[in-house]
Every structure is written in structure tokens, then in C-alpha cells.
Design a protein around this nucleic acid. Sequence first.
DNA 1: GGTCCCATGTAACAAGTTACATGATTCC
DNA 2: GGAATCATGTAACTTGTTACATGGGACC
Lengths: 187, 187
Amino acid sequence: MSLRYGILGLLNYGSMTGYDISKYFRESVGYFWNAQQSQIYRELTALEKDGLVEYELVIQSDKPNKKLYRINEVGRENLNGWLYDFNIDDFFITRNALLLKLFFSSQIPVNRTIEMLSKYKERCEAAARELALHTGDLSDYQNLVEDDSESLYWKMTAARGLADYQASARWAGECINILRKRGEQDD
Amino acid sequence: MSLRYGILGLLNYGSMTGYDISKYFRESVGYFWNAQQSQIYRELTALEKDGLVEYELVIQSDKPNKKLYRINEVGRENLNGWLYDFNIDDFFITRNALLLKLFFSSQIPVNRTIEMLSKYKERCEAAARELALHTGDLSDYQNLVEDDSESLYWKMTAARGLADYQASARWAGECINILRKRGEQDD
DNA sequence: GGTCCCATGTAACAAGTTACATGATTCC
DNA sequence: GGAATCATGTAACTTGTTACATGGGACC
């Protein structure tokens, strides 16, 4: 159900095409929610059938025609309901493919796991640098409190992404150290 | 595909029933991979059809009969292949329902969001305490290097879980502080 | 000439969720 | 008497993934 509300949430900022939504998902929500383009078109069709959004067909000559979707009153109420209600358990449903692999990695050579963790660490550091450009940390309270509210919420999520990447990189580094010592021992 | 290998990985430690696998998923892998019981039975059937596992029907008088699954040579090779190959991109596919909700939360009263984050924080702290009982941190290198290798890998994943929960709780606390100040300002 | 951007979608399949169904035994 | 544990599964449905298909315009 989250995808549906992610789309509604974006449409609540302004009218968009499926293409736009797909782009926003990648660019702004991407580090905490992935959505396939085919999934978005499918969900838009469903949203329209359920009467939460409407669209206007925009004829273009230089570019392909497009459907400009906008949220309606019913959709807005639905979105608010979803924002208001929460079930804490939902927030703890996780799937971490790296941890699953690592959990069973005693079966393969240590060096291979070190290689995997090193690449993971690099990517985390790169992602952290990237995110840090767009957000600071949350310690500059004064500034944050005076921010307009949309960007405040945006910064909170970005700060979480940043903290995640940093913690991941640190953790990966520790694992690499341990595995290296283990490797030496085995020599 | 990860579920398939998660099951193979568990079976590689020893023969089990679908019921056992389901339990292990909840108890030991649960904080980084969720699996429904119905999903496990379905995948076991597929694994058997694909010739990666075999089972023995165990007749019991006091309890229901059971199928004791064991991994075979083909399954072991498959598992090793999966452990050995990795695609870093796969490790960055995330879905965080809390962040998605928070991202759009400028639409609802600040107090409601504070309430949500507070409950989230409590649960993170409880989960961290729980995990900390079973693992230390990774700084006790000497001990870790001398550990048997299965528990070493297990501890690395647990350490990551712990770091995650702690970072999450800290972050939630910062968000709550900011939102409280914002609330005062609005009075 | 090749790639990226814009913009739509469909089809087939894989994976995840929810609910139902059965039934004995053990523990409180 | 009621809940939990053991143990299997099916059915229906929703989500997520991968690949295919189309085609003009912009930019290098």
C-alpha cells in the first residue's frame, strides 16, 4: 500500500505525469523507497479507477502526449488518513540482502567477503558524500526550526539517510578489520 | 531470489522442516529478512522440484508427521554460487515505510508525528537492548578473531542490527527535539 | 551515428501478504 | 477451558521485477 500513498503524496505537491513521478521516486525518495516505472503506471490506473486522482490529457506536438494527473479531494483525505494512522510494526519490516549474504558467508573464502564489504563501504561513503551536499546534519536547530515545513521534513529523512550510510560504512570497516586479522591467522 | 538462498543457507547447517525454517527466519534472521510461512512452504516445494533439496517423510505418533528437508550437492553448489557472486546495487534496494511517511508529514499536526517518532524510538531502544544481550560490539577484536567462524559472521550481522537500532533511536530523538521546538514556535 | 530525454504502456512472471483449514498435545 | 506449540498446506490477491515496444527531438 505504501507505493499508492507515495504517489498521492507527490501529487499533493502538484500535478504530474507518471514519468515525473517515476523520476521523483528515483531522485528524492529513492534512497528509502524504490519504485519501478511499470509499477507506477499500474498504480496510477488503479488510483484513477478508485477515484482518488484525475487526469487531463495534454496534447503536445514536439513531445509525446501526456496524462497530467492531479489528486482530488477523496485522494487528499486518503493521504491524510494514511499519514495519520501508523502501525509501528510496519516500520520494522526490513530486507537487507547484504546481511543475509554475510550471515552465511562462513562457507566462502574470507578474501571474497572482504572484497564485497570493501566495495559496499566505498559505495556507502560515496552515497554519504552525495547526500551531505544536499543536507547538513540536524544539529543546526535554529536554522531548521525556521525552515519552511516541507524542507524540514525532507531534511529529516535526508539526515536519516546520511546517518545510515555513515553507520554502514563504519560497520563495514570494522568487519573488514576483523576478517583481515582472521585471514592472517589462517596463513 | 534471496529467500531461496536464505532457506538453502539454513538447511546447510542441518536438516529441518518448513516449520523450523520459519522459526529460524523469525528468530535469527528476522531483523534483516522477513519471510512468511506460506512463502517458505511454497519455496521448499520449488526447491525440491528444481532438485536442490530432498526430503524424508517422518511419521510421528504424538505430533503431526513432518517433512525433514536436507540440502543436496546441487543445492550446496547453488548456495556457494550465490554467496560468491554479488551485485553491489542489490544491497542498496531499500524500503523504509517510516521515512516515506515522514517525508510527507508536513500535512498533519506536528504532535502526531512526534507521537509516531516517540513510539518508534522506544521500540528501537528495546530492540537494541534485546540484541545487545546476544552480542557485544565488534571492538573486542581478539575474542572475535578466535571465535569459531559461524558465530563470527552471526555477530557481524548482529552488530549491524545493533548499530542500526541505536542510530535510529538517536536520529528519532533529534527529530523529536526539532519538532517540539517547532511546536512551541507555532503556539 | 549514438545516446539521452520525453512519455506511454503491456505481458509475463516472481515474490510477498492475508486468510483459511485441520488437529493432537502440552501447559497454565 | 484456553492458549501455545507442532506441522502441514491451499487459495486468492497484491506487489515488485524484467523485458519488450514505440518514436520524435536534442545534443555531441
